[in-house]
């Protein structure tokens, strides 16, 4: 009996691992870049490890290095974090029911909901042979492990990387583009994709590259809600 349980967990981890390989590449590299940057700012490997364990937010951690070296106030730090990571408010809406039934793992699942983990959990179609909760948990945990490992490597040995890594961060862009292609092909999701693109491009032009994402996502949510309402009243009037 115990062997069966073990085997099942093994197949869950294996399946989760295969899903995370595209993120592994990007997280190891970006984590390394963060560790190296932090090391150069005078904070050794334990800082890199600790920050990647408790903050765990890609672009925010790079900003954090400048906040640390500049001696920012706590209020400034809070404002900056709300500003940069504000987009994460929207992520949980797709996982409320899925996470709620995960018991002890629930808080960790909420904590570890980064852009990349969100993307993988949205795209992964979990076969009936493996446990959905286990797979979701391992995808989340493995991703953070890559990020922490990268941070530690960067902090200890970032200067030793001999080949030119310029452009390797494009792997995250490629992942998001590929997922958009998948969602487009699924057909029913085309309208949200179009709304997402139009809204973000509009606010990018209006507000500039550093400030567009929050208004853009808020507008997208409003448009989706309005369309739903209209569709709802149409189906009501037709019945």
């Amino acid at each position: 009996m115990e062997r069966i349980v073990q085997k099942e967990r093994g197949s869950c981890i294996g399946f989760a691992f295969r899903q995370t390989i595209p993120v592994m590449l990007g997280y190891l590299f970006l984590g390394t870049a963060f560790g190296l940057m932090l090391q150069n700012a005078g904070y050794h490997v334990l800082w890199a490890f600790g920050i990647s364990c408790v903050v765990y937010a890609g672009s925010m951690q790079f900003i954090l290095v400048t906040l640390l070296t500049g001696g920012a106030s706590l209020l400034q730090t809070a404002m900056m974090t709300l500003f940069i990571n504000g987009r994460h408010i929207f992520y949980g809406f797709s996982f409320i029911e899925r996470y709620r039934k995960m018991g002890k793992a629930y808080p960790y699942m909420v904590f570890s909901l980064t852009d990349e983990t969100y993307s993988l959990l949205c795209r992964t179609k979990i076969p009936v042979s493996v446990d959905e909760n286990q797979v979701s948990f391992w995808i989340s945990l493995l991703n953070q492990c890559y990020w922490i490992l990268g941070s530690v490597i960067g902090s200890l040995a970032g200067q030793l990387i001999a080949f030119d890594t310029t452009g390797i961060d494009f792997s995250m862009t490629a992942l998001f583009v590929a997922i958009v292609v998948e969602q487009w092909q699924e057909g029913k999701a085309r309208l949200p994709v179009i709304i997402g693109f139009l809204s973000s491009l509009t606010f990018l032009l209006l507000w500039g590259p550093e400030r567009f994402i929050l208004p853009s996502l808020s507008a997208a949510v409003c448009i989706l809600l309005i369309l739903r309402k209209r569709r709802g009243s149409q189906t009501q009037s037709s019945t």
């Binding site: 809406f93 797709s94 969100y118 949205c122 949200p192 179009i194 693109f197 809204s199 973000s200 996502l217």
Partner: peptide, 18 residues
């Protein structure tokens, strides 16, 4: 419903963000 139709909009936004 919002939870089910948000992911494609968010993924498109993340592409622009990148």
């Amino acid at each position: 419903e919002l939870g089910s139709c948000l992911p494609p909009a968010i993924m498109a936004t993340l592409v622009v963000y990148c």
